[in-house]
Each structure stands twice: as C-alpha cells, then as structure tokens.
Design a protein around this nucleic acid. Structure first.
Lengths: 183, 183
DNA sequence: TTGCATCTTGAATGCCATACAAGATAATTC
DNA sequence: GAATTATCTTGTATGGCATTCAAGATGCAA
C-alpha cells in the first residue's frame, strides 16, 4: 500500500515536464518543438519522457489539461459578470495559448487522442455556457445555438490576427443580438 | 521567345502533381502524406517534386490555389441567391477540403508562406462579402462586422463535426440577426 | 540481503523533408 | 547536322524526427 512517496514524486515530475513542454509549445509551436528539445531543457534523455507519456500527443494532452485546470482556478471571480465580460475573459485567457488552440484544431484529423480531448472539452464548455444562459431565462434550444456561436466567434478571433476594435465590434454585435427580448 | 512547348508541359505537369497531392492531402491529411508517397503515386522520384516546388509548403499553396480557383468557377450561378444560400454553398464547397482548412489554420504559426496565403485569402473573401452586403444597403462598417462573423461561423462549422440541424439553426439565427431593419 | 517495482539511459530503427551533383532529354544556335 | 544550352529526372546522401528495446541504476519490501 504505502507507495505514496513514489506517487508524489511522479506528480511533481509530471508537473515539471508539462510546464517545460507548455512553455516550449507556446513559444516555438508544437511541431517545431522536438521531444529531444524538451528533454534537453530538463537535463534529461528523450527516452525519459516516454516513461511518463506514451507519445508526444499524450504529452500534449497532459499540457492541455494542466493549462485548462490552471485557467479554471481563476474562474469563480468571473462568474458574476456580464456575458460580454465573460467572453472577453475567455478570449484573454486563451490568447496566451493561441498557438495551442490552432495546433489542436490542426491535429483533429490525424490524432484520435486529440480528437477525444477536443470533443470532451467542447462538451464541457457548451454545457457550462448553456447553464449560464438558461439562468438568464433563455430557452435551452436558443441557449445551445448561442453557446455554439459564441464558441465559434472566440475560436475565430483566436485563429486570426485582429485589432482591438474588431474584437470589440464583434463582441458588441453578439451581445446585442444574443439577448433580443429585454430591450 | 518560342519556348511555349515546354511551358505548356510545365503547366500540365503541375496540374497532375497538384491534383494527386490534393487527393492525398484531403483523404490522408497533409502531415500524414509524405512527399515520397505523392511521388510514388505519380511514378516519379521524390526529388522531381522539388524541381517544381521549393518545399512541401509551396506544394500545399499550389494545391490550395488550384482548389480555390476550381471552386470560384462555380461561383457565378450562385451570386444571385440569398445570403443564407450563399453561406450554405460556401460551407458545402469547403466541406470537401475540411481537412485542408484545419491544416492551414494549424500551420499559421509555423509557416510564413501559409500565413501569407491565408491572409490574402481572407482579405479577398472579406472584400467580396462586404461588397455583396453593401449592395443590400448595409453600411460599410456593419458589413465588415457581418463578414467577419459569417467567416468565423463557417470556419467553426468546418472545424467541428456537427449535425445538419445545428448548421441550419446557426445559419438561420445569423440570417435573422444580420439584417435587422427590413422587418 | 535478496527480490521487485520504479525510473533512467544507450543504442538503434525507420521515416521524413530536403540538398547536391550527375545524368537524360529536348530546344536553340551555329 | 553538330554543339551548346535549358529543362527535367534521378542517385545518393544528410541530419532530424518520434519512437522502441534492452540494459543499467535506484530505492522499497520481505
């Protein structure tokens, strides 16, 4: 039973691996970052990485989950604000890892692992957004549509370079058309 | 002057190369399709490809331009229909090359060549859409916003698997919110 | 102390995009 | 029509990549 000591070390090590990988993935890009490079940065042999992760894709999933859960920790204070502010927050949060968002989308057709992660992520995201919208008195069906549209707009803004004005205009337009009745 | 014969051969050859590459890129994916594989399919040495294209990315650009100009040939009959039908057509047109759309977005951060092509493409697309919307009496500023939103929705639908109903709902919603006045 | 699970490495494999130099083939010039 | 040149194709090679397998090191349990 008492194999705790080891398990703790494992999490600590994984944390270090994923943080280094995350940094390199975000600055140099996923494809441009080799396993050797990550290992080198950690003062380790490439093979070591393969003891913790079966493949580079699996390491990517580890990185994605870590970044995501780090973002989610900052979520509670935001929950109270307006939808537009919430979208704006999400946008800013993902901006840091814009490259990774594009990487994930680019790998959807090749990697079942990434495809699964992506699908799970969007399911969770949509159900959260829908829940929030329903609390504002929007029908489930309408909420689903709005959630999807909001997601597409965020992803579009992340994928394409844009000015602050463009972003504001789009968010403004969406805010005005998303909640038609209360006017 | 009279070097026509050769020049014609060059275009014919490029056409064959790009068609084969396009087919493989679309069915197996860009990354999963090696230059050797394309050459093999053509009964040629991999090096031959490098006489026509400086790199795999450049071949991709050739493929993209060819697919695009093929699509554009079918454009005139569509120009008269409703905006919703036009978006629907664009969606169907890109559906075939959904994988390539994702590939392009995934490569934006790594390849300047692809980045340039992507930027040019979106500039041309936006100006076309804006032009169409202005003809319907929409202000330039509003038309720009709508064009961008429409683009993001199309790309979102391409990037994520979705049901017919989802697509219809989103296009319907956009159609109703895009032209607010005439009601 | 012996055995076992955990972690790390050395050395190798096969694939990849790509480079360079040398061959083949056809067009142009003399 | 022979020699030269531009066009196209190939043979051969390189360095990097993700990944694998077998063998070493390290610490825990009996």
């Amino acid at each position: 039973m008492a194999k705790n000591k080891r398990d703790i070390d494992l999490d600590v090590k994984k944390k270090a691996l994923e943080e280094t990988a995350a940094r390199l993935f975000m600055t140099c890009g996923y494809e441009a970052t080799s396993m050797s490079r990550i290992a080198q940065e950690l003062g380790v042999t490439p093979n070591t990485l393969y003891w913790y992760y079966a493949s580079k894709d699996e390491l990517l999933v580890g990185v994605l989950n870590r970044l995501l859960s780090d973002s989610l920790k900052q979520l509670p204070p935001i929950m109270g604000s307006s939808p537009k502010e919430q979208i704006s927050w999400a946008l800013q949060e993902f901006e840091q890892s814009r490259a990774l968002v594009n990487t994930v989308h680019g790998k959807l057709s090749q990697s079942a692992l990434i495809r699964d992660w992506h699908e799970r992520f969007h399911r969770a995201l949509e159900s959260a957004v829908v829940h929030t919208l329903k609390a504002k008195g929007i029908s489930t069906e309408q909420a689903r549509i709005l959630a999807t549209v909001a997601t597409f707009l965020v992803e579009g803004l992340l994928a394409h370079p844009h000015t602050e004005k463009q972003r504001d205009d789009i968010l403004e337009w969406f805010g005005q058309n998303a909640l038609p009745d209360p006017a």
